[in-house]
């Protein structure tokens, strides 16, 4: 009985007390700062909205990493391409929200097809998968630019342009909507993984592929499903990015990089960690850009990566990662 309990903790995510305290302290800091300064509050909300986008793309990366221990470098470009599909649908006269949900379905199919056709044949080799996703990065970029051109495109604003005022603080409806949609999709995904039989099978396939296949889980099918769900999350992040960046082939490249930083911060294996990491990176970049003069926009990427490197060197398992013990 005791042994069983021990094994359970070895598999569960490594949520430790110091990390929880740290998060709590951070949250309290943000609340106090927001109460005392309206600029701080505004930057925090905008940072959270951006961070939610980073977080959902980071979650897409984590889904794939958990299942196959590879990073999908094409995740951002895939998100960009699916956003263009939504754009094409609205051009054909489909209403925004119908186009939104149709795009999610298309993204799912696209993710599954990519896994089955080009990833599955080489999935035993990390270097091969990385290079294939790099190839997909270039391929998707080329296809989109070829079809739609490199100039800016505009879609109807999903949430309108209204701005709310709470005291002296202005919140844009756009930021709030982004936050709600991304958090909602993350929660839906969590429910799927935690409370459905399919979710259980997917987790089993990711954690112990051999054992899962022995009890009748179709591991390969689950991996393909994982890629599909990752593509759906990517599509959400792409569609939520569009209102602030507008539509262009390079729009997700920087966001993919922030998502890398967020995923590593969260431990690369932990879905909750990816989302919290994304929120952290978003708020951190916004606040530091506001209050530290040296941190000009050119340094946004290097700073996000300084966080990434620091995490890798100081706490390689991230805030929520499991410690990996390998037997030799």
């Amino acid at each position: 009985m005791l042994g069983l309990a021990k094994r359970k903790t070895a598999v569960s995510t490594g949520l430790s007390v110091p990390v929880l305290l740290l998060l709590l302290a951070g949250a309290i800091f943000l609340v106090i700062g927001s109460l005392s300064s309206s600029i701080f509050a505004q930057q925090t909300v905008a940072g959270l909205a951006q961070g939610a986008i980073f977080g959902s793309l980071a979650l897409a990366l984590v889904l794939i990493y958990r299942a196959t221990e590879v990073i999908n470098f094409a995740q951002g470009e895939l998100a960009m391409a699916t956003t263009y599909i939504a754009y094409q649908l609205t051009l054909w006269g489909v209403s925004y929200w119908l186009a939104f949900f149709l795009t999610l379905v298309i993204a799912f199919a696209l993710g599954v097809v990519i896994q089955v056709v080009v990833i599955r044949p080489v999935q035993h080799s990390v270097i091969a998968v990385v290079i294939i996703t790099v190839g997909l990065f270039i391929l998707i970029d080329g296809l989109v630019t070829w079809k739609w051109g490199a100039d800016l495109k505009f879609m109807p604003a999903p949430f309108g342009n209204a701005v709310y005022h709470a005291g002296s603080v202005a919140f844009s409806r756009q930021d709030l909507g982004t936050l709600i949609v991304t958090i909602f999709s993350v929660i839906l995904l969590w429910l799927l993984f935690q409370f459905t039989k399919l979710g259980l099978a997917m987790r089993a396939a990711a954690l112990r592929p051999a054992a899962a296949s022995l009890v009748g889980v179709r591991v390969n099918r689950m991996l393909a499903l994982g890629w599909g769900l990752a593509a759906v999350l990517g599509a959400v992040s792409g569609l939520m990015t569009e209102p602030t960046q507008f539509l262009q082939p390079t729009m997700m490249q920087a966001i993919l990089l922030y998502a890398f930083a967020a995923a590593v911060l969260g431990g690369l294996e932990s879905p909750a960690g990816a989302v919290i990491g994304g929120l952290f990176i978003g708020v951190f970049l916004n606040l530091i850009g506001q209050y530290i003069g040296f941190a000009t926009p050119e340094l946004r990427l290097p700073m996000a990566f300084a966080v990434l490197l620091l995490v890798l060197l100081v706490k390689p398992n991230g805030l929520f990662g499991r410690r990996q013990v390998r037997r030799v």
């Binding site: 080009v118 080489v122 091969a128 290079i131 294939i132 270039i138 391929l139 080329g142 296809l143 630019t145």
Partner: peptide, 21 residues
């Protein structure tokens, strides 16, 4: 064309990794 090039480039990379790992 400038963008078709990327398409071909990406395709060849994927094909090479699949056919000649």
């Amino acid at each position: 064309s400038a963008h078709g090039q990327d398409v071909v480039f990406g395709l060849i990379v994927v094909l090479i990794m699949l056919l000649l790992p």
